[in-house]
């Protein structure tokens, strides 16, 4: 199983390579990628240098161009694909049908991966992308159980990549307008979710309150671990009860089920977190390198490595998420 690591900056890319990532995925510093966060991402020159570093060690770099091009202004997205192709990226990760069509015709030699933002969650959808555009790998949406992933892999010809660790979307990705409903900025259009530009923290009485677009997303008492106010990970009132209605502020951690994922025929494991720091990237990638090596040699996942991942989890707790049926 290939270990695919995130990089929001060149420093994270170097950290990921040093920690044993097989592949690093990244995006350009603009709205063409789904982590268009302030101060993050790569210039073409930085990508070129990153490719040089990775290729020197026989590793790979995938470039995510996975937002949806704007009507009347598709050129920036096409340029991003052209740039990635001309610099020698090992694959581009796309989600838009029009852009996939463009890339497959313009760069027939370029390896195309389907982004999780396309939410191809079943056989007919995957087959569509594979046959229409020659997509070679599909990043599966985070809504499938391990059994469903295994069933899919028995039927599809393309590779599948799944998320192993990091922040979870409880929603089908690429089909969520919650952020734009509250802030006017959307993952699909702007490459941001619950953008920092619309986030405020305020102290109200004893509590720290996090707001998004002026609405309270969460409230933390002294000593309580605080989180970033990502909309779907907030606490709300429904039926008179306060709680994490959509998702707890937890990290996905598939450490316990790696051998099941391997048996399910998964080709690559992806770490979420291009917006996280290089210390995080280094630590998670190193831990997963050890886990994968252990699983590939049919050994047990080292317990201390699993414990180490706990500390890095968002909100300091974790879950196997949608991979288990109970999550639903």
């Amino acid at each position: 199983m290939e270990l695919v690591a995130p990089a929001g900056t060149p420093a994270s890319l170097r950290a990921a390579l040093a920690a044993g990532a097989d592949t690093v995925y990244l995006g350009f510093r603009d709205e063409t990628n789904a982590r268009n966060f302030p101060g993050l991402n790569f210039s073409p020159a930085e990508l070129e240098e990153g490719l040089r570093l990775a290729h020197r060690e026989g590793r790979k770099v995938y470039v995510a161009v996975n937002t949806f091009p704007r009507a009347g202004d598709e050129a920036p997205w096409r340029r991003a694909v052209d740039k990635a192709a001309s610099l020698g990226a090992d694959a581009v990760i796309l989600s838009d049908v029009g852009l996939l069509d463009y890339a497959s015709r313009r760069h027939p030699e370029l390896r195309l991966h389907l982004s999780v933002q396309a939410a191809a969650s079943h056989l007919d959808a995957i087959r569509f992308y594979a046959e229409a555009f020659g997509v070679r790998r599909v990043v599966l949406p985070r809504v499938l159980t391990v059994e469903e992933i295994a069933a899919l892999n028995r039927q599809v010809k393309v590779e599948t990549e799944v998320f192993a660790f990091g922040g979870m979307c409880p929603m089908a990705e690429g089909r969520c307008s919650l952020s734009s409903y509250v802030t006017g900025h959307s993952p699909n259009i702007n490459g941001v979710c619950s953008p920092a530009s619309h986030v405020r923290y305020e102290t109200r009485g004893d509590a720290l309150v996090s707001l998004l677009g002026g609405s309270v997303i969460n409230r933390f008492l002294p000593g309580e671990a605080a989180g970033y106010p990502t909309l779907c990970k907030g606490r709300f009132l429904a039926s008179g009860e306060a709680g994490y209605l959509f998702e707890e502020p937890v990290s996905l951690n598939a450490a316990q089920i790696l051998s099941q994922l391997k048996k399910a025929g998964v080709a690559a494991l992806k770490i979420e977190g291009r917006q996280r720091g290089r210390a995080y990237v280094a630590e998670v990638v190193a831990a997963y390198r050890r886990l994968i090596d252990a699983v590939l040699s049919d050994g047990q996942a080292p317990r201390e490595t699993v414990a180490q991942l706990d500390r890095l989890a968002e909100g300091q707790s974790e879950t196997t998420g949608a991979y288990g049926r109970k999550w639903r």
Binding site: P38, A196, S197, R200, Y201, F220, Y228, P249, R276, Y280
Partner: peptide
């Protein structure tokens, strides 16, 4: 040396105003 998010989740750092 530390993940800024992790610092924040553990509330070692507090933030107000223009988060961006």
């Amino acid at each position: 040396n530390a993940d800024g998010d992790a610092l924040f989740f553990a509330r070692d750092l507090a933030l107000s105003g223009d988060t961006e």
